[in-house]
């Protein structure tokens, strides 16, 4: 190809990135992507409506329909319930990470991102941050609904906030798992369908809505040790004040270990998946 000779041999000057470290840009890019994801979310009013109505219905359903039949020793059922609804809601909410990424992948938006000089981490970080904000909003809705039907925080404000943060950390860890699901699914519906059966046993075979002591022994072996129960238990104790501070902290450490462990495993896997997807 003779035309090659017309190409100037010396490389063109690359417009330098504005001063500031890579980390600063990684954060800035992630926030721009997160902002876009949230903006997109508020643009779909029916999606907001239904994601807000779901936790409200869960609270009311368990408070008034099933609650009468469930006996929790030592506390009112509504107080027991709220931590369960928190965790349940953010769990199913984290499926949004899978759906959102699958959508961006198939509309070609990820392609555009990849050709931009933005931080490579920003797409996944921005997605999971946006979903974290949504989870926080959902938890606010649950708290307000809970208060209306008799839920009362019995621990200090600091302890309650710690409980909320514990749940959010778990939600964030799940988002990274669902990032992999979203990047692997053939479309957004498939992503959602794939996510559901994974979540379902963890969400319901847990201490979220009923004390595990009511379950058969073989099931308890699973329910006691699985992460959802441990996060729910720890959050519940932090919000309500556990029987003894020592016992409560052990549960909290376990819950933290689960979330931390999930993040350590799935963040690198998700990033690897993102690099490979094309």
């Amino acid at each position: 190809m003779t035309a090659a000779g017309a190409l100037a041999p010396e490389p063109a000057e690359v417009p330098q990135a504005v001063e500031g470290g890579r980390l600063r840009w990684a954060v800035s890019d992630a926030l721009v992507v997160a902002g876009r994801n949230l903006l997109r979310f508020v643009r779909i009013p029916d999606a907001i409506f239904f994601s807000a109505i779901q936790p409200v219905m869960l609270v009311l359903l368990f408070r008034y329909v099933f609650g009468g039949a469930i006996d929790v020793p030592g506390m009112s059922y509504v107080n027991y319930l709220v931590a369960g609804v928190y965790v349940q809601t953010v769990m199913f909410g984290s499926m949004a990470t899978a759906v959102g990424l699958a959508e961006d992948l198939h509309t070609g938006l990820l392609e555009r991102y990849r050709a931009l000089p933005m931080a490579r981490s920003a797409v996944l970080a921005g997605r999971t941050i946006a979903d974290l904000v949504r989870s926080a909003v959902a938890m606010m809705i649950i708290t307000v609904t809970g208060y209306a039907v008799g839920f009362r925080v019995e621990a200090s404000v600091g302890s309650f906030v710690a409980g909320v943060l514990l749940v959010l950390l778990f939600a964030h860890a799940l988002s990274w798992i669902f990032a992999i699901v979203g990047l692997s699914a053939s479309n957004s519906e498939a992503a959602q369908l794939a996510a559901f059966p994974v979540l379902f046993p963890f969400a319901f075979a847990s201490s979220a809505f009923v004390p595990v002591t009511t379950m058969p022994g073989w099931l308890q072996a699973f329910t006691v040790h699985q992460p959802v129960s441990q996060v729910v238990d720890a959050a519940r104790q932090l919000m309500l004040g556990g029987p003894s501070p020592l016992w409560s902290m052990a549960d909290v450490w376990q819950a933290l270990a689960w979330s931390g462990g999930l993040l350590v495993v799935f963040v690198p896997l998700a990033i690897r998946r993102y690099r490979r997807v094309s």
Partner: peptide, 9 residues
């Protein structure tokens, strides 16, 4: 959004 991601103010 694209402008911000190319690091414009």
């Amino acid at each position: 959004m694209v402008g911000r991601l190319t690091h414009m103010t």
